[in-house]
Design a protein around this nucleic acid. Structure first.
Length: 816
DNA sequence: CAGTGAGCGAGCTTCCGCTTGACTT
């Protein structure tokens, strides 16, 4: 019987550590926090020192019970949770919940899961650090207070079920403010001039850029004219040594960024796959903010580099963390085994593993040695303009042999090339000169990964919450990840060749976006409301400021409930002021102008059913008319013309088979209705311009599809049919669907068989309303108590989400 | 399933961080 029970946070870690310790030790995992604040609004007694009420959640009961049993049998219980604030709190909660005493329990901490580190750590046990625990309690309580006082204000002032919080509201703010910068951005154009030159000795053409840009076409043209008679000579040749150093090994945030840029993974997918690699023992822990590698790892890594590349490629380094609130309870993310023999993995796992391994290896490799050459070319001795050619040659590749980091935005610089050997004073021949109109670019929209980077820079959120936070703000419909088609734009290109200047007008695509984050109307309204009324909470520095105070608590210099007191008093009085103030909703209405037909005012506004345009006033004699916005339209940017267009639907296209054909936009996107049969438009069809002929084509297509859908019907029981669905044949059984067992030919099924299958699958022929079905489901899932929300919500939210992706749904339907 | 665009009122929603599983049409 083992005498010692060691409790860590993660089961994979438990397994590893158990291997390091002797037979007397059993190592178990707490699976993260075991207790949390009670659910409702009564978890914190603000009147009495913010005393918190903790409960063991249903999901953790089993874990706690198992640990209790083991603890009873053990002589010593070692609390070996992470060294950071949260880990210390977990240790304390365990201590309390398991009824431990100073006599039967000890605490030890480690920064890396290596045998040496663990054995050393257990030699140096300590007490639970209550100052650190209190810092965590302050953090936890503050987050609850902020979230649970701000959210209800939004329910009342904006819309039910919304949420606000210290982290998510700032994330939304970042997206909203960037969108506004982009909206306000005016692209300026200028003419960038490039020449192709040749040396007489070494006739390899190379490119050089003019040191000045021209704002106007006329200036560019005048310059090219001037160049028709120019004499080119090399004024100077400068060669400078340079070097590039590798980046540190991955943290959670940098892994998410690079996996997004290099292999196109969403941050969610990255974390899911990293978890698999971690559990299989291929990588170290993936939720970390540390760039540090253990000494053991560095030795192993250096050995691998020497073996694969040679000694001159080895340069071991210790990296310093840049982010200020890093807690560094773990190592950086690295392979557990650096050798080139890769474990057998799925394709995605292999790609992520490869990235992690190369990045870690490169971090311990030598700098790349470069040589940068700059050649200045004068046009003629009098001209103030000059052409500059730059080239870069890699003298020693170093870490570049393994890994080079990608940038968020592609820079304009092309791959720097080797320049021909040229000496000062030498005359050059010019092959051609081009002046091309270039536009300035607006700030880039955020991707999920670049938003994580920004949050990390601001010290907001933790490695374990980056991905969940970003999915929360999308679930709340504050932000959507979306694509945009670019717009065509013309630009001018002037070319001087063989003494002749020619002009071309070309066109380019700009502003196309893929998987970028856009604020929704509701996101903007909520943000504006919070910025106006709670600017201090959604301030970019709010977290940094409270973090400083948490640190003071952790150092024992500040009492945690005093800190909360001084935060909460002014905060709560602000909350009360707004809750008891005028019962006005946060207004989103934007005046667009006057409708020329009726003379009434046109508004863009947020309604119960989402963003819409409105003609006329509520409460006026003539009730206002409404029309929903299309996808990609927003209250902030819609124009009067676009708004008026929305009232052109539904429209009649004419008669087909003596019945009216109408086109409109519904819940699932644009549709045609004819003889009360609905047909979706294809993505390429525009409901505003579609003509009768095309509509009839789609109606007939739909009929053909319907015909091939039905495999078999039973006249004696018309609710039962066998049909072809998206996933193959199935039995449509009243309102529910029944699976056909594998190996059964759907064509030969009898009605009796169908009824038997239905019975076996627990389906009845009652016309079950979807509501009660979902309620039953809710009951089922209740006991598991995951973070997943019940599937069916209030009518408003349901509709709002359904509206989100009409085109997607349409596509699916068409495939069917 | 393809419409709608309130305010008589029933009761709900919500935070951040730490961890892994157990669920289907």
């Amino acid at each position: 019987m083992p005498k010692h029970l060691v409790i860590v946070e993660s089961p994979a870690k438990a397994k590893t550590i158990e291997g390091y310790l002797g037979k007397d030790f059993v190592v178990k995992a707490s699976m993260g926090h075991i207790r949390d604040l009670a659910k409702g609004n009564d978890a914190i007694d603000v009147e009495h020192g913010f005393s918190p009420k903790y409960i063991v959640s249903e999901a953790k009961e089993q874990v706690v019970n198992d640990l209790k049993k083991l603890a009873k049998k053990a002589d010593t219980i070692w609390l070996a949770t992470d060294e950071d604030r949260e880990g210390e709190a977990i240790a304390w909660h365990l201590y309390e919940e398991l009824g431990l005493t100073p006599h039967n329990s000890k605490r030890f901490v480690y920064h890396e899961v290596t045998k040496k580190a663990i054995l050393k750590a257990i030699e140096q046990p300590r007490e639970i650090d209550y100052d650190l625990v209190n810092a965590q309690q302050a953090r936890r309580v503050l987050d609850r207070l902020v979230g649970f006082e701000l959210s209800p204000i939004l329910w009342r002032k904006v819309r039910p079920s919304l949420s606000a919080g210290r982290v998510q509201s700032v994330a939304v703010r970042i997206i909203v403010e960037r969108e506004r910068e982009i909206q306000e951005f005016n692209a300026q154009s200028s003419f960038k001039v490039n020449g192709i030159f040749l040396s007489e000795k070494e006739p390899i053409p190379f490119q050089a850029e003019l040191s000045t840009k021209f704002d106007h076409e006329a200036d560019a043209e005048a310059f090219l004219k001037h160049c028709t008679h120019a004499q080119y000579a090399v004024r100077s040749v400068e060669t400078k040594p340079g070097k590039k150093s590798p980046s540190p090994p991955f943290t959670t945030s940098t892994l998410q960024q690079e996996a997004s840029r290099k292999i196109g993974f969403s941050i969610d997918r990255t974390m899911r796959i990293a978890q698999i690699l971690y559990e299989a023992g291929h990588i170290t822990y993936m939720r970390t903010d540390s760039v540090n590698l253990s000494d053991d790892a560095i030795v192993l890594c250096a050995g691998e580099i020497e073996k694969s590349f040679g000694k001159e490629y080895v340069q071991t380094r210790k990296y310093q963390n840049k982010s200020s609130n890093a807690q560094e309870a773990h190592e950086a993310i690295r392979p557990t085994d650096f050798s080139a023999t890769l474990p057998s993995l799925s394709k995605d796992e292999a790609r992520l593993y490869d990235l992690i391994r190369k990045r870690a290896i490169a971090s311990q490799m030598a700098d790349a040695i470069l040589e940068k050459t700059t050649i200045s070319i004068e046009i003629d001795p009098k001209s103030k303009h000059m052409f500059i050619a730059t080239g870069e040659v890699i003298k020693f590749d170093g870490f570049l042999a393994v890994y080079s980091e990608s940038q968020d935005e592609e820079s304009d610089q092309e791959d720097s090339k080797r320049l021909p050997a040229i000496s000062q004073g030498e005359h050059l021949l010019n092959e051609s000169i081009k002046a091309v109109q270039r536009y300035s670019k607006p700030p880039a929209r955020y991707t999920e990964a670049s938003l994580v980077k920004k949050l990390e820079e601001l010290g907001i959120g933790r490695p374990s919450t980056y991905a969940p936070t970003i999915s929360t703000i999308q679930k709340r419909n504050y932000v959507i990840k979306d694509n945009r088609d670019g717009k065509k734009r013309e630009y001018v290109s002037l070319t001087l060749q063989s003494g002749v200047i020619s002009k071309e007008t070309l066109s380019e695509n700009h502003g196309a976006e893929k998987a970028k984050l856009f604020p929704t109307d509701i996101g903007m309204i909520v943000n504006d409301f919070l910025v106006e009324n709670f600017g201090n909470i959604v301030d970019y520095n709010f977290t940094a400021n409270v973090e400083e105070q948490f640190d003071e608590i952790a150092r024992g210099e500040l009492e945690w409930n005093k800190m909360l007191e001084s935060f909460y008093t002014p905060f709560h009085s602000e909350v009360t002021k707004i809750m008891t103030g005028p019962q006005k909703r946060a207004s989103s209405a934007r005046e667009l102008g006057i409708d020329p037909n009726t003379g009434l005012t046109v508004y863009a506004t947020l309604t119960r059913f989402g963003s819409a345009v409105q003609i006329g006033e509520i409460g006026a004699e003539i009730p206002p008319k409404f029309a929903s916005l299309k996808q990609h339209q927003s209250i902030a940017t819609i124009s009067l013309e676009e708004a008026l267009d929305l009232f052109k639907l539904p429209r009649s296209l004419g008669l087909f088979e003596e019945k009216d054909v109408k086109v409109g936009i519904g819940r699932f996107g644009p549709y045609i209705v004819h003889n009360s049969v609905f047909t979706s438009l294809k993505p390429e069809d525009d409901p505003y311009t579609i003509e009768l002929e095309r509509a009839i084509e789609l109606i007939i297509q739909k009929r053909e599809l319907q015909a091939s859908r039905l495999i078999k019907a039973f006249p004696e029981q018309p609710e039962v049919t066998i049909v072809n669905g998206r996933f193959g044949p199935y039995i449509s059984f009243g309102k529910s669907n029944v699976k056909i067992p594998k190996g059964t030919d759907p064509n030969t099924l009898t009605l009796e068989q169908c009824n038997t299958f239905a019975e076996e699958q627990g389906k009845t022929l009652q016309k079950v309303a979807p509501k009660s079905k979902a309620a039953a489901k809710k009951k089922e899932t209740k006991s598991t108590l995951t973070t997943e929300k019940p599937k069916v919500k209030k009518a408003t939210t349901k509709k709002a989400t359904a509206k989100k992706a009409p085109t997607k749904k349409t596509v699916k339907k068409n495939i069917e």
